[in-house]
Write a protein that binds this DNA or RNA. Sequence first.
DNA 1: CACTTGACCGTAG
DNA 2: TCTACGGCCAAGT
Length: 108
Amino acid sequence: MDEELHEMIRAVVRKIPRGRVATYGDVADIARAPSPRLVGAVLNQDGHDLPWHRVLRANGTCAPHIADQQLQLLREEGVVADGGKVDLRTYRWEDAVKEKAEEPPALW
DNA sequence: CACTTGACCGTAG
DNA sequence: TCTACGGCCAAGT
């Protein structure tokens, strides 16, 4: 696994503001990762220090095995989940979407 | 080297 | 809205 990319992904996740969320796909794009799967893989290994709970699937749901804790942590930040799903239109990290649309060569 | 696995995603039906 | 499928890519067996 590419160490630099690995580091990049963690940096992006750390950057997600409180009370907001991002999808694995968003993080992948911003971190220039080849696939969203990689983001999940990285969080699975080194995600324990990060606000990993702010990362969810493209449809607003969380991975089954961690759903309970994730939803609770989010609730503590004011992110409400209806029927196990979060409304991305409301809580999605908009700045990330904007950056992604513009193609900033910025290297974070 | 071939095959399976997984914190995924977009498109059809 | 929800499920099924195919595609995806690195890591592990």
